[in-house]
Design a binder for these strands. Structure first.
Lengths: 130, 130
DNA sequence: GGAAGTACGCACAAAATTGTAAGTATCCCA
DNA sequence: TGGGATACTTACAATTTTGTGCGTACTTCC
């Protein structure tokens, strides 16, 4: 029965083409590439973090956005949330195996940008000059 | 003098930390990872395209968004725009060498998502079931 | 000879994203 | 005993992003 359902979900995106409006990968992509999704993944790539810890690490996130972002990533199966039911709340967020794979690519992209910044800025400078 | 200016621009982001609010890489990242930026890069990764061609290929973009996105990517030095001044306009967009590098990472991420979709969907299915 | 295609720019409107401030229950520290 | 930290949620407001429709100057197709 799960076979049937899974098969049903599989139909239609076998070719997985993000360029198509209705491809489910569009949604996943947007979670991974929106303003805070990328940064949270980058932060979590270095290991488990608590909520407030992440908030401090990712410059500029509001609590609202952070929890929303974490929820989406959790729903996509990239992040695992573990809550210890103690009185001052204690919650830990970490990447799932799937999340580690995804984070690998995100980190690679971000890393490339940081490394390429000199060239990018130089290019902008040249354009502005002419 | 260009040395001096470039040096000035270089100051402050030597460590290139995207997690910092004021890192210039945040801007580049957002151009590359916003709704249409990713898709345009993916489309251009397969070769040069004309405007209307891109519009058809990238499902869902409006002309307004497409030209805006292309302008940003051009300003970042990822896309080269070549206009032939003929009467029915003829403009070609293609990746610069820098853009090819960037597109490589973007395509890798998107490709991974498409490939991982079965696992991602299976995970969602499992979560919904419990 | 009317329709459609080309590569946009512009003004206006709608929609989505993001921020702000406040509230919660409890503990630890001074 | 007052204040801060913890991990959020919710309502409301500001901001940003995105879409829509129109105009252009001219050509080719039917």
């Amino acid at each position: 029965m799960m076979e049937r359902d899974a098969q049903g979900l599989l139909d239609g995106w076998r070719l997985g083409n993000v360029l198509a409006t209705d491809c489910p990968s569009r949604g996943i992509l947007s979670h991974l590439t929106n303003r805070w999704g990328v940064l949270v993944m980058v932060a979590l790539a270095t290991g488990p973090h608590r909520f407030a810890e992440l908030r401090r690490k990712v410059g500029g996130v509001s609590e609202r956005m952070l929890s929303q972002t974490l929820k989406e990533l959790e729903a996509d199966g990239f992040v695992l949330r573990t809550a210890h039911p103690v009185v001052p709340p204690h919650v830990v967020y970490e990447l799932t195996p799937l999340g580690v794979e995804a984070a690998g690519h995100v980190v690679a992209l971000v890393g490339w940008i940081e490394g390429a910044l000199p060239r990018i800025m130089a290019g902008k400078l040249a354009m502005a000059a002419e």
